[in-house]
């Protein structure tokens, strides 16, 4: 249980969180939104703003491992939590996460602006055993991430590739695989 605390509207509240594996302390106002704190105060621009109202998914981050819209979360509520953004997904040596690698190989993006959100949703989904692995279930689970460039087909293929990769099997034999690679 977190301790009781109270802050006036113009107070600066210190928030301590683990951001991409590193402890971070940042002073925010009570109404500061996690997305804005990431992009403007911490200058981590990888998390995107596409609507600011939970309608596009571009701002998706992991909070304690769960995919959330950072545009609808108060930064002060992240006290003591682990926040992972797209900047924290690749290995320290620069090796891409299997989902990132699959996005690269499948060309699962165009303009790239929704991409961090797609990837954060995809990685959380692949870790969530409650979500089925068939193509229809993936499409449904990913529907909170709009891609206006319409790279949905390649995103799906990339996610299914990454699933195979992360399970240690041969990459991808989803029904799209042979077609996309031809």
């Amino acid at each position: 249980m977190k301790d009781y605390s109270e802050h006036s509207p113009d107070a600066t509240v210190p928030v301590h969180l683990t951001l991409n594996g590193e402890p971070v302390s940042v002073d925010v106002t009570p109404n500061a939104i996690l997305l804005d704190v990431l992009r403007e105060q911490l200058q981590l621009g990888g998390t995107k703003k596409g609507c600011d109202h939970g309608q596009c998914g571009a701002c998706t981050v992991h909070v304690d491992g769960i995919a959330m819209n950072s545009c609808l979360r108060l930064a002060v509520m992240c006290e003591g939590q682990e926040v992972t953004t797209i900047e924290g997904l690749a290995e320290a040596d620069g090796r891409l996460h299997p989902v990132q690698q699959a996005f690269l190989e499948r060309d699962a993006y165009q303009c790239g602006y929704c991409t961090p959100g797609q990837i954060m949703s995809a990685t959380a989904m692949l870790d969530d055993e409650r979500i089925a692995s068939d193509d229809a279930a993936v499409r449904e689970a990913m529907s909170g991430n709009i891609c206006r460039c319409g790279a949905y087909r390649n995103i799906l293929a990339a996610i299914q590739d990454a699933r195979q990769q992360m399970q240690g099997a041969d990459p991808a034999r989803s029904d799209l695989a042979s077609e996309v690679r031809s």
């Binding site: 301790d3 009781y4 605390s5 006036s8 107070a11 009570p30 109404n31």
Partner: peptide, 19 residues
């Protein structure tokens, strides 16, 4: 976006009182 005060409740009773 307007500003607001913020209270983090540690019990239901305190949350209700704060409100």
């Amino acid at each position: 976006m307007r500003t607001f005060a913020y209270a983090r409740a540690d019990s239901v009773e305190r949350a209700v009182d704060a409100q």
